[in-house]
Design a protein around this nucleic acid. Sequence first.
DNA 1: CACCCTCGAGTTCA
DNA 2: CTCGAGGGTG
Length: 744
Amino acid sequence: MSDTADDAVLPEARPDLEAAADEVDRLTERILQLREEYYGGNASTASDEEYDAMARRLEQLEQQHPRLRRQDSPTQTVGGRAETTLFAPVEHAERMLSLDNVFSREELDAWAAKVERDAGRSTVRYLTELKIDGLAINLRYEHGALVTAATRGDGVVGEDVTQNVRTMGSIPDRLSGTGHPDLVEIRGEIFFPVAAFDDLNARQAAAGERVFANPRNAASGSLRQKEEGKSPERLELMRDRIRRLRMLVHGIGAWPVGEIERATPVGAQSEVYGLLAEWGLPISTHFRVYDSIGEVAEYIKRYGENRGGVEHQIDGVVVKVDDLDLHVELGATSRAPRWAIAFKYPPEEVHTKLENIVVSVGRTGRATPFAVMTPALVAGSTVRQATLHNQDIVKAKGVLIGDTVVLRKAGDVIPEVLGPVVELRDGTEREFVMPTECPECGTPLRPAKEGDADLRCPNARACPAQVRGRVEHIGSRGALDIEALGEVGAFALTQPAEPARPPLETEAGLFELALDDLLTIRVQVRDPETGLPRTVDGVPKLVAPYQKKNGEPSRAALDLLANLEKAKTQQLWRFLVGLSIRHVGPVAARALAGYFGSVDAMRAASRDELAAVPGVGPIIADALLAWFEVDWHQEILERWAAAGAQLATPGHPGPGAAVVEGGILSGITVVPTGALEGFSREGAVEAILAAGGKAGNSVSKKTDFVAAGPGAGSKLTKAEELGVPILDADGFRKLLEEGPDAVR
DNA sequence: CACCCTCGAGTTCA
DNA sequence: CTCGAGGGTG
């Protein structure tokens, strides 16, 4: 084993990284300068091509060494946005639905049983096909000619990628044959062939271009490129990549009722595929039609064991009712057809090496061990770390440092270490020992309560990890929503290399920050791999995140100050959330703010008064009383107020104010989920509350409505199970305006 | 007092 | 998304 203490104190010399860091600095400065020239209307000192090349090089370096990315990096403001907004929106003629999922044979059987019951038939023919892990695409043909190709987007509006789809060469500009409908939408999936993927990355690396994490990203990245402003060589490279993309079509969206049937006698999904092939469109060879769900299960099993044997990545199997009459009969819910289902294979498990177990301290002081692993590709993304929660769980999982471990993604999202592969041990593995002292401030760790598994650092006021965490929390979307105050900003303000005393020793001084404080800040550049400070000739390498080379304040500095000024007048509940009081999150904070109207009124309240607020019980009341008693907490409130933070709701009549009653949604609980068109996530909640309703987070029998947009997941499934009425964005709007009776 | 809901906190990556 | 725990209800 090499990860001994010696390695930790003697960082390897990394000349390549030093060079990269210098290059990042140089490029960042130069690009910012050029941008200023450009926006300032001055003559530019570089050509567009030079600018483009520098921006690409910077992006590439930052991708390779994420920690070198400077806070004021130009890639964060324009480059990032460019790729996501430059494509024109295209509205699909018919909404692109998604599919409901099943994860087991039992769920599959249950779905089939329901289909057969609803269809009133004892035998239904099923078509099975592989679910391609790529990009869903909608091809719009008018009178047989390709008009647009668009990504799925939110299901209603996608992005126009017609030019690149034409470049692919394998998608016909004109459908073959005759008698095409006036308008037809063909649905399919674009993917990057697995076989060509490694070669692609090799070429990308050789050309100094970005390397893709997986074929799906390669497909997405290739398709979402612009031709404009590229040199002839780069244009050819880009087109070469696009030509390697493949598409397989698997369905028809909008078509005028009866027109296709008139043109050709299709009565089944499998016949639709025949028709699509006749039109010259690429269809998969992997689909089959079966008479029983048992055979369907066989098909699923067969491909589950042979996921690598196909030209594209497989996400699962799609099972469709073959008979088109039944499609009409079974219909669709607001987001998915009832005549099709996606069988998802169990989350992929991979082996990787547990290199170390490191302990981090969060804003609440909890010391959490997490696994640091050799980066491994799991379910489409590269995973390096995963939480191990606490030492009991480390024990329970039985993992040793140096073990080969089984890693997966729970719910295909959160990485989870399942356990060790004991057979692969060679005796060099060692047990993890939970530290007894806080890794950041050295204070002895102890459980909050006797017998608690979680250890905490009791040094809440001064532990750098906790102050940093709290400052970051204040800036987060659920609290004061200070855009320029994220992880990096919180670090710079609380733990800079210079000055010795950070601008913020606690969050009390947040609203007192002045430009001069920011300008003096220097942050230590760290090695992205070891996390250790980097030095140049023995001198620590520092950067000034809030200052430009010429000494002027950087944009990050100006943004931060402007954001802070705006945050001073945020709603009272947001301040409460920002105070990191135990058990006080957005819901409890709203209840408290609505009842008391000011922090002062809360501070003056007795335990009983606090607990009288609906949603607040004795435990939260005690947590509040305890919080108010601490001197340095009082100081936070005093200094925030003195700096102009508005810790009271203007016009609030005072404690015990009647809760707003009589709203149109009074007594109604609505759970928003998915992307509701016209509402942000927060906006939907606000709208429900403003109408006097309750906004829920989870669906239960007590939920009156679920408002579901595209991308809704388990909540929607749950609502369907429980028979809770489901509204789309329009229904939701109607509910807000006209009340529950209008939509019931 | 025993449940059922709901809330809060921690979590990862593109 | 999941877990653990607080609040409220029967």
